[in-house]
Design a protein around this nucleic acid. Structure first.
Lengths: 360, 360
DNA sequence: ATTAGCACTCATTTTTCAAGAGTGCTAATA
DNA sequence: TATTAGCACTCTTGAAAAATGAGTGCTAAT
């Protein structure tokens, strides 16, 4: 608003100190503590005055008259913003990289071991993150946009059943078995294969509109209804392939934080993680808000998921070469270790890209 | 042991009454309550004496001197055994069927609506069960035994990649893409297809032993290593197809039962449900113990999963026509409504069979 | 064999009290 | 004018004490 910053330097230092200590201890922090903690060389009385100001400005509150202060969402927001802008320049502090080196190595090793499917990989990522951070985590499958059909291959299975193998760009493969009302011959299948592939190959889902479909139905002549059935299956399958899946892990980590572990809050949270339905909001918000870093921090009420208003959520977008995007999220208490979490997510984001290149 | 039953009729009645009331209230039940509850027309003092006997025999305990009694595992076991033997004759009480009729209808409707994949169906079953019973639930994918290979189909994807579509009996289909070190021609693929299918079709996993593999390697001549690679992929894929998947739901229902919701117990339980790893014990135990009814009740310490020793678990085997077997489990507090749970599971077991026939 | 009566036990709840942490305000100080 | 020391006051926390009440075990009466 004003062009002078709202907080002078001393207030900033004090606020930072308050939040730092609160993150570490989880207890309201008093003026005496700060007066010792900082190198400001100020008495507790002075700090008290400053803290009263900070309270007026809405950065901190005291839970009751004779307690220390705890940060408000606004306070956390200040802290995180400051942190993010510092991190942008430095990208990753030497010591942090050092410290996380081992983690990454361990992760790589673990991931390379028994991973033959992307979903297993993602599940493992969730699990590892949960273990390393002590927060709850979620990881989504990558979402493709503008999926192109590479080819379709029909095969008779006998018994009036036909197997359609649908291959999309990026070698994403889906199967669909369907029953016909009557037995189908080898020639018919051959014909259908040719018809489907000459018309559809290279098209995106959006391009398979009504006009193309009805044209194909005409060309198929007597097999019109059959073609329609197959097309529907294809469309549905492609849509399904794009179906968002969410893996979560470490839900019970929330019991490590007293402010979240009273049973009603905990129950609600775990439910949300278990049902996964509501987590899609998180993903949407994450994919839309494209800041440069690919990292998004939601503090308390800011989070797009109703049931998580007592938590903070940090999300990261990971992106594969083909423009497939997915989301990783970390859910913890407001007083989470933002610095470590953001750092870890930045690392994972990068690593994940490399790993996917190895997997097909 | 002795040929006279350990409990005379009066003791049985009283024990039954104690357990019944305890199931309903969750509080230790005292002698006065029982003296009113039963039609035995006995004073509380008499009941007190009988209860003291029951305590000596290990069917009940009092949590402290001046409290009522609660059932021990042995007590529950008696209760459940009695119930199961009664149910075997009656199969399903008229009123229960009536009462559950609506549930089943609702379920069928829901399941038929948006279910196009077996795994979604099973997930929904878990969810519905959890909602209807207020306990935590798990459902496994059906396990096949002696999976036979129907055929394999290799297709070039270009870019040194080959798609293998593996079709098993029961039209279970898996895909696997793999990279070769060098480009592969159309003829080579054709040859490989023929070689693979003439040799392998109709074989189970167990039959693909070393002698067959090395024989094929020889026949393939220069493509030996290639064939080996493909075979490995096939074997792995089939094993993977048989990979047990477990869906859980309603984990947070455990918060409805105070005896389970202190945070360490709850955390451990939810973890187990989330990780799913340990639940396989449950499945194994369920599939092995083949009693006539297909229903198995584990009380407290009896359960094959360590972390669930404060719970009771009821499992049911469902079986599809092709001999595929899966497990449904309900996890709740010791004082769960065994009668309702067993009844519901019996119904679901039957319904599920019908539904699978509809799905492919 | 059953029951009434009574003393006793122990968990639970409520009340009371003391300790401690931290604040806000005022007056003194540099 | 900005800082600090000092003090009264507030409110949480924890422990101890007291009251409540449900339920038992035992004895003596029926």
């Amino acid at each position: 608003m004003a062009d002078t910053p709202e907080l002078d330097e001393r207030k900033e230092t004090i606020l930072h100190a308050v939040i730092d200590t609160y993150l570490a201890t989880g207890e309201p922090v008093g003026s005496r503590t700060i007066s010792k903690y900082t190198d400001l060389k100020l008495s507790s009385a002075t700090i008290r005055n400053e803290m009263a100001d900070l309270e007026d400005m809405g950065y901190v509150v005291s839970p009751h008259t004779s307690a220390g202060r705890i940060p408000t969402d606004k306070g956390y927001r200040f802290y995180v913003n400051q942190m993010m802008s510092v991190m942008k320049d430095i990208n990753a502090r030497e010591e942090d990289v050092q410290e996380r080196e081992q983690e990454v190595q361990e992760m790589k090793k673990f991931l390379n071991e028994k991973v033959d499917r992307v979903d297993t990989l993602l599940q493992n990522v969730a699990k590892l993150l949960a273990n390393n951070t002590n927060y709850a985590t979620m990881v989504t499958t990558p979402q493709m946009s503008g999926n192109k059909l590479k080819f379709v291959q029909l095969t008779a299975l006998g018994d009036k059943k036909v197997l359609a193998v649908i291959v999309m760009d990026g070698n994403l493969i889906r199967n669909k078995v369907f029953d016909f009302s009557e037995e189908i011959t080898q020639e018919q299948i051959l014909k259908l294969n040719i018809l489907l592939n000459t018309t559809l190959n290279g098209l995106t889902l959006e391009q398979m509109n009504m006009s193309i479909i009805s044209k194909m139905e005409q060309q198929a002549g007597p097999h019109g209804p059959l073609v329609r059935e197959i097309l529907n299956a294809i469309v549905e399958t492609i849509q399904n392939a794009d179906h968002l899946q969410i893996y979560t892990s470490g839900a019970t980590n929330i019991f490590k934080y007293p402010e979240l572990s009273d049973s009603s809050t905990a129950s609600e949270l775990i439910s949300t993680l278990e049902e996964k339905q509501m987590l899609t909001n998180l993903v949407k918000a994450d994919l839309e808000g494209d800041n440069e870093t690919g990292i998004q921090v939601y503090i308390g009420e800011e989070t797009p998921v109703e049931t998580m208003k007592d938590c903070s959520v940090v999300t990261a977008t990971y992106e594969l070469q083909d423009g497939m995007k997915g989301t990783i999220g970390i859910i913890g208490p407001r007083r989470m270790d933002y610095e470590k979490v953001v750092g870890t997510l930045k690392t994972i984001r990068t690593e994940l890209d490399g790993m996917f290149k190895k997997q097909s």
